[in-house]
Design a protein around this nucleic acid. Sequence first.
DNA 1: AAGAAGATCAAT
DNA 2: TTGATCTTCTTG
Length: 192
Amino acid sequence: MLLQREFFERDPLTCARALIGQELVAGPCAGIIVETEAYCAAGDEACHTFFRPSTREFMSVHDPGAAYVYLNYGMYWLLNVLVKGGGGGAEDGFVLIRALEPVVGIELMRERRGRHALHQLCSGPGKLTQALGITGAEHGVNLCEGPIGFRPRLEHPQVETALRVGITKAAHLPWRYLLKGSPFISAPTSSL
DNA sequence: AAGAAGATCAAT
DNA sequence: TTGATCTTCTTG
């Protein structure tokens, strides 16, 4: 059973934290989410809605739980989930899926990635989409219906926070969430 | 029409 | 530390 709409009817910070320890499933592959980041539609200069009209349009026409997939640096697909806590302001936004612990379909992930080591398969937002076969073709699809979606997994994971990775604007906000002690995260944590 | 910026990654 | 590579948006 996949996580349903009501899970994504919360603000980005709450959702980003709640997704840690859950499983991301994509067809024959799956992994435990060990790293996410929250982006808020209002008051967050790093969120695409701040400088991209097309992203604001995307938010307005899609339901919570929709996949927001975009090409970064001309090379890598990044997967977000649209969340809507209501109000159309800071309660709405996106959660970026940044890293997984590979669990199912590991051989296929290895083929797609061209890497063998477990910790090199999904330890970054561009890596995990490649490992799971997620591209722009999935942009806009709803993740509550499969074949891509989220499965409940860990009951009470220990979650840590840190600064978001790779951004220049609003870089001081501690909106990165990590599964405590996981060796599968994308980068060392930065101090707050 | 042209340019800049960008939520990355792997090789040097 | 650097190069690869392309979409979106802004400026002329």
